[in-house]
Amino acid sequence: MSLYRTELRRLVKRRFTRYMTLLGLLVLAAVVVGVFFSNQKIDATAHARAERQAEQQYQEQVRYSEQERASCERDKAAGVNADRYPPDCAMISPPPREAFEARWFLPSTFDFRKSFTFTLIPFAAILALVGFVVGASFVGAEWNSGGMMNLLLWRPKRLTVLLNKLAALLTGVFAVTVSAGLLWFGGFWLVAMFRGSTAKMTSGAWQSFALTGLRGLVLVLAVTTVGFALASLGRHTAMALGGVVAVMVVGQFGLGILLEMAGTRFAQAWLLPTYALAWMQKKVTLEDWDACNATFTGECKPDTLDITWQQSSALFAVGVVVILGAALWAMRRRDIS
């Protein structure tokens, strides 16, 4: 029997894999349902209501300005509260009517073309977490229960065994991610149809969605590989889970606080979530407001630093290669006991 097929069946039949996958899918479904009920389709009635609210807001500002101007004239005549008002009470006037735009009062609506890309970020994050935990448990449980030693008695080629396990794991995660991605797309398409808009969908928009989804898939597979490699390296699921907790809590939050206290410019450039976000969005622009670059109009513009998806890909590729390489080296060199 093929080792790869055996490992794939073992992965599918594990209860932890099924429960963790089901939990991840339920969370994704909850997100879609939440977005559905928090948005609504904007029709002529909603536009008319928004226009009335804008007019009401404007009239309230007119009345408030008239009251303040009357108070100004009264206090100035009495010679009190002179520092509370401008030199000329006529300067107190309401904002222009065009300052109150009806679109500010429109309810939230889901525009598929503008919003779907941003939904792929939590989608990738949730499935990456599921993949990490499932990957760590898949190989960690084998080490902890002694199943790895028994398997190596049947197939003594260590690297072949480990790589077949990894291949089976990535196949399963790939299938779940692609299937969930199609359901995610279908769910938000329905949200847009009934609670928003599907207008202005061009070939460029579809291509952008496809590329962002592909980057999300790669991120999920990379994080799954890291979880698998860490658990194999430590020969226990807790090694992977403890490692990620240490990195995120100590290495990220602690480092972030330390960099902020030290006044480091672009402190977020040292944090992994920034690069994950840049990978999904293609670019993240960090701003340093402590450095003020005055323009010819007197406007203050901060210094900026761009983190691109190319930089993120290089960082993640090196990380995956180093961690997986260490796991393979340890598998080859260390005693199996």
Rank of each mutant, 00 (worst) to 15 (best):
E51R: 09
M91W: 07
L127K: 06
E101D: 10
P122W: 00
A78H: 02
K114R: 14
E101I: 13
P87W: 01
H47V: 15
P86L: 04
G131S: 13
G140W: 06
G140H: 08
Y58C: 00
E73S: 08
L120H: 03
Q59S: 10
G140A: 14
P95T: 14
A99M: 07
P107Q: 05
R63N: 15
I92F: 01
G131I: 04
L106R: 01
F116S: 03
D88Q: 05
A141F: 15
R74K: 11
C89V: 04
E68L: 12
R103T: 14
A46M: 05
L120T: 07
I42Y: 00
T117N: 10
Q59E: 15
S115I: 07
I42R: 00
A70G: 06
A99E: 04
D111Y: 08
G79H: 02
I92N: 08
A141H: 15
A124C: 04
K41Y: 06
H47D: 06
T45R: 08
S93Y: 13
W104K: 09
A50P: 09
A78R: 00
D111P: 07
K76S: 10
L120D: 05
E68G: 04
D111H: 11
F110E: 05
F138G: 13
Q57T: 13
A125E: 07
A82Q: 15
Y85N: 10
D83S: 12
R69S: 06
E66W: 00
A102M: 03
P87T: 01
F132E: 11
F132K: 04
A90E: 05
K76E: 08
S137V: 14
A46G: 04
D88P: 03
A141E: 15
T109G: 11
S137L: 08
R49M: 10
S71D: 14
